[in-house]
Nucleic acid binder design. Structure first.
Length: 459
RNA sequence: GUGGAUGUAGCUCAGUUGGUUAGAGUAUCGGUUUGUGGUACCGAGGGUCGCCGGUUCGAGCCCGGUCUUCCACCCCA
């Protein structure tokens, strides 16, 4: 076997201990909030049958699915059948794919387990997903999604609670320095967008409208209008939208303006009513959410949203959306379970990681790691140290004994590199007297103490 | 998927118009120090110059292809 350089597939990453500690901090924070609001964990397989995945994300999405080659001699089968194009070939050689998101597998899960589940069903799911996208900074081919969805209820309490969960997650992520991150929880409603399209006389072009208007903060009003024109919106339509670009005032003032704008659209008015109810439920919950901003230009590309749409955008860090979600009707229709509405939220761990790193918001890693390292001079002291190690662990102190009594310098360096705050030195003097050398690595100071005195110091 | 940049030691980077044995900082290992890490001083190891091919007497440097990473689109977390 010839030597080869190890390598990783494009767009995938290893995570070392330092990074994992920080990632767990984010994941644990999100998990705790989900649990607090009554969401229960599930997991689904990394791979799904392609029939489950295909056709759910649009043509672009289908392109980005990772397909898994069938086992066995699939080639002869396909040549026998004389398949020519890759489009014909694909079903013959691949019937499984890696999941593209957590929402579609969840819909499949709900349909398959509908008779075991109690509705409304609230689940959270934290697992990696895969996309055959071209990688860029903050965009990978393998990344984690942290989803929570409530399915089987139309209640807007879910929407209100999503807002609260977002607020709570970001509050808890900033324990070390509260309010360092300035961010907006943007909310809109697909029905409002449909209403707008209807009022300006462009019914049926909801998706085109959503894709174009979603770029407003990136490319500006003029470019959005150009793109809308390219997508077949008439000059008269564009004229009518213009006031919406300069919608001013707080959430309630905006709602007042929109109500007037959409008064002739049934669906638009329904969207407004839903937004009002979310605000009203939040008020009833006694919630103060200054970050919540109504934004009629928020669209989100995903076409399956039908009601509320959410997005979280950092304001004092250069970064795209770090969280998003919304309500969708009929996601389970495809799998034969109609009339089930769901609403969900997803946090983007990788981007949140970058934001926290930039604002230096990660807590000190010290509490997570080993608190005490025991180092021994010789074999006899090492044997004695086993007892010391045991007493530390019995008292729930994260501790380790250097596995061999090698040169002290090497053992000390190990403790130093691992950022272990305390070291107990055991040699012939210590085993004789029973007083151990207890060293504070940060101070550089050390005292001779009994085990019980050491335990007191560490508590 | 389209267009553009990038790649030299584990990491960050030098490397002259193409010319002998490719360097530095940092990290690693050893020593100064056989009862002490983080600072200091001394020394050592570590490279198929991303990979494959071409031009040339001669390529880290020029040309083509390929892969990686990054940037802008498309789309998205």
């Amino acid at each position: 076997m010839s030597k080869q350089k190890p390598s990783l597939p494009k767009g995938t990453r290893d995570f070392g201990p330092a990074v994992m500690t920080k990632r767990y901090f984010i994941l644990d924070t999100i998990k705790k909030v989900y649990q607090k609001y009554g969401y229960a964990p599930i997991e689904t397989p990394a791979m799904e049958n392609l029939s489950v995945l295909q056709g759910k994300y649009g043509d672009e999405g289908d392109q980005l699915l990772f397909k898994i080659l069938n086992s066995g001699d699939f080639l002869s089968k396909s040549t026998e059948q004389g398949l020519k194009s890759s489009k014909e070939l694909l079903p013959a050689i691949s019937e499984k794919g890696l999941r593209y998101d957590l929402t579609v597998p969840f819909a499949r899960f709900v349909v398959m387990h509908q008779h075991e589940l109690t509705f409304p069903f609230k689940r959270y799911q934290i697992q990696p997903v895969w996309r055959a996208d071209r990688p860029q900074k903050g965009r990978y081919r393998e990344f984690y999604q942290c989803d929570a969805d409530a399915i089987g209820t139309n209640s807007l309490l879910c929407e209100a609670e999503i807002v609260l969960m977002i607020q709570e997650v970001f509050q808890n992520l900033q324990q070390t320095k509260p309010d360092t991150l300035d961010y907006a929880i943007k909310i809109n409603n697909r029905k409002v967008l449909s209403g707008i399209v209807e009022v300006i006389g462009a019914s049926g072009k909801e998706t085109d409208f959503a894709v174009a208007i979603d770029k407003l903060d990136k490319i500006g009003e003029e470019k959005v209008k150009e793109e809308l024109a390219e997508r077949g919106f008439s000059a008269a339509s564009l004229e009518k939208i213009t006031p919406l670009f300069s919608l001013k005032g707080d959430n309630f003032e905006q709602i007042t303006h929109l109500k007037a704008f959409l008064k002739d659209s049934e669906i638009g008015s329904k969207g407004i009513a839903e937004l009002e109810e979310v605000f009203s439920i939040l008020q009833g919950l006694g919630a103060d959410v200054p970050q919540l901003e109504l934004d009629v230009t928020l669209a989100r590309g995903l076409s399956y949203y039908t009601g509320a749409i959410f997005e979280v955008k950092p304001k004092n860090v250069e970064m795209g959306s770090i969280s998003g979600g919304g309500r969708y009707d009929g996601l389970t229709d495809n799998f034969g379970l109609p009339d089930v509405s769901g609403v969900g939220i997803s946090f983007g761990v990788d981007r949140i990681y970058d934001v926290l790193e930039e604002l230096d918001l990660f807590p000190d890693a010290h509490q997570e790691s080993t608190q005490v390292l025991i180092v021994a001079f010789d074999q006899e002291s090492w044997n004695y140290s086993l007892r010391v190690l045991n007493s530390l662990r019995v008292n729930n102190i994260k501790s380790e004994l250097y596995p061999e009594p090698v040169k002290l310098k090497k053992q000390m360096k190990y403790g130093n590199d691992k950022n272990i705050p305390f070291v107990i030195v055991v040699g012939s003097e210590e085993t004789k007297s029973g007083l151990l050398t207890f060293k504070d690595m940060a101070e550089g100071s050390q005292d001779n103490l009994s085990i019980s005195e050491i335990l007191n110091r560490l508590k």
